[in-house]
Computed example of a mutant assay.
Amino acid sequence: MKITDIQVKRLRIPLKKPFKTALRTVEAVEDILITIHTDTGDIGYGEAPPTAVITGDTREGIEGAILGHIKPRLLGLPVVELETIMERLHTALVGNTSAKAAVDMALYDLFARYHQAPLFRLLGGARQTLATDLTISVNDSAEMAEDARQAVLLGYSTLKIKVGKDPQQDLKRIKALRQTLGDGVTLRLDANQGWTPREAVKLIRQMEEADLGIELVEQPVKAGDLEGLKYVTQQVETLILADESVFSPLDALRIMQERAADLINIKLMKTGGIHQALKICALAEIYGMECMMGCMLESRLSVAAAAHVAAGRNIITRCDLDGPGLCADDPWQGGPVFDHAAITMSKEAGLGIVPGPTFDQYISQPFSSFSATPQKKM
């Protein structure tokens, strides 16, 4: 099974309602879809969202990285030589983690298809079912409370609440949510780097004193402020989850060595794919730091890839894989079943996902077709 071609298209799926955080407002999933073709006729699927405010990756940048830099290095290589391929992928260019993630998951899809096994089985096979939270966007208190109430009616017992725009308004919103929901729903907060360290400590302590029962707070301070993150972690009882501060295994190692956070949020678009995410899992096992598996605004394809990793490794104890639950439609068929909060892994080989009947209406024509020829192994 050798790589014969890599193609790129654009995918657009409307959201059920606008997705609002401290950093941005988005109305649709507008991701880059890639397909890796082989001489056996097998096709691997991958996806990457252009999340410029977090990863720095744009649509044009992802497309150019894949077609102009990654594709020429991978053509002609056997899929079974996964370690060699991953080395070529990650040395093709610096950064560009979203582009690498899309190619990485398509390669793992093919690798598991070759071995005729679901990918999560090859990654460890820790479990067959997962539970995800659902994100509640930043809005006024009444709208957030209604969104949360509707989510609970759908079966979600854990909600991730977007905060970070105004600390005191954030406190009012969370109090209103807890009053609406009662004590039976787990609340996670995601500040998306929206607070200063002192603001974070003051606000989290106020929430603790008010007994709001917050499970964790995600990325309360700027991504590069490791000292600030550590300060917050040391000053509060609530668990602190590092997200934007952790892209690479080296980032994760620094967090773990400094105990700058209590938990690590792994996202394939930050790590550059499954290969690097597994290295973070290995480090987390050594340091005894539990991980969450998260996602960006992605369709069920790439969220399924993240689910395979989460189902494979025991160190991943929490999931924020709500991308499919935010989309207004699903152009895919097969693969893990996302039934609101419950995710059930399937028995199909690879990621298990292929285009569904409505697929074409969400796809535009390929962005480009850079000329590329196979390179000899070095």
Score class of each variant (00 low, 15 high):
49 P>T: 09
30 E>W: 04
107 L>R: 01
69 H>K: 13
79 V>H: 07
110 L>S: 11
117 A>I: 08
13 I>W: 03
37 H>Y: 12
92 A>K: 09
68 G>I: 06
61 G>F: 08
45 Y>N: 10
73 R>T: 11
91 T>F: 09
94 V>G: 15
55 T>P: 02
26 V>M: 13
85 I>Y: 05
69 H>D: 10
50 P>I: 01
44 G>Y: 01
75 L>F: 07
84 T>W: 13
96 N>C: 02
11 L>T: 06
20 K>W: 02
54 I>H: 01
39 D>Q: 02
13 I>M: 05
27 E>H: 10
22 A>G: 02
12 R>I: 13
32 I>L: 03
88 R>G: 04
98 S>D: 07
40 T>W: 11
38 T>A: 00
54 I>C: 03
21 T>L: 11
94 V>Q: 15
107 L>E: 09
90 H>V: 01
25 T>E: 09
38 T>N: 03
68 G>S: 08
98 S>I: 09
112 A>K: 12
84 T>D: 14
114 Y>N: 15
83 E>Q: 07
58 T>K: 00
51 T>A: 14
90 H>M: 10
74 L>M: 02
41 G>T: 09
119 L>N: 06
25 T>K: 06
94 V>N: 15
24 R>P: 01
49 P>N: 06
89 L>M: 01
112 A>N: 14
36 I>Y: 13
48 A>I: 04
37 H>W: 13
90 H>P: 05
65 A>F: 09
29 V>I: 14
57 D>A: 02
45 Y>E: 08
85 I>C: 08
88 R>K: 10
114 Y>M: 14
86 M>V: 00
78 P>R: 11
75 L>I: 07
96 N>F: 07
102 A>F: 01
58 T>M: 12
28 A>D: 00
105 M>T: 03
27 E>F: 02
32 I>A: 05
36 I>A: 07
57 D>P: 03
60 E>H: 12
28 A>G: 08
15 L>F: 07
50 P>Q: 05
66 I>F: 08
92 A>F: 00
8 V>E: 00
89 L>I: 05
66 I>E: 02
72 P>A: 12
24 R>Q: 08
82 L>E: 09
68 G>C: 06
118 P>N: 15
27 E>I: 12
63 E>L: 09
56 G>C: 03
8 V>P: 01
10 R>Q: 14
63 E>W: 04
33 L>R: 04
96 N>I: 06
89 L>D: 04
119 L>Q: 10
81 E>A: 13
82 L>V: 13
72 P>V: 11
113 R>A: 14
50 P>V: 11
14 P>Y: 11
12 R>P: 07
119 L>K: 15
22 A>W: 06
